[in-house]
Amino acid sequence: MSGAEAEVTERRPAERDELHKREYDLLDTILQDMADAVVAEECYVHVQPRRVFVRVHPDRLREFIRYMQREHDMWQVSTLSGRDLGDDLQANYHFFLNDKKIAITIKVNVPRDKPEYPSITDLVPGVDFVENEIREMFGIVPVGHPNPRRCELPENWPGEEYPLRKDWADPRGLMKRSKTTGPRPKEEL
């Protein structure tokens, strides 16, 4: 490769034009009302219409969700996704604002050595299952979850291994095992 490589980034903010007026109205209101709860430089309106990203401090997450439910009628939860950013782990809550027709993603960054943030299952019952899932898959712990349990991985899975983290090294050779080349002999079944 020659020449300067363009920086690969997920962040593609939109222009302040007529197409994105509703989204910027919402984002400006959020930045004004909850200025100390959000990380302002990580909040933006995506160039794709009807898409807003907000990053929230972990300790203010519950307050922010309550504010969104109270002021913006945010009641429909889509899902929760996790990411491994290297130093940080990230939980992304995806919500739909039906009246404004906007999908909003609330990002929570937690440090890798202490990946904990307050659970919002009592405010949003729909994330009960996915918060358990993110604890299993990424090791991001929603503290105060009313019903912590194992939901997806096998029962004999070791507790301290999180398969969707980038540094999971596959110590038991599971990924090699599933690349099968033929039926297993009958005596091994």
Binding site: P163, K176, S178, P183, L189
Partner: peptide, 19 residues
């Protein structure tokens, strides 16, 4: 195994469990 070939939680085919 199909698209799940190489995943950590599948065996990769029914013939890995039963004839």
């Amino acid at each position: 195994g199909g698209v799940f070939r190489g995943a950590y939680n599948v065996l990769g085919g029914v013939d890995q469990a039963i004839p």
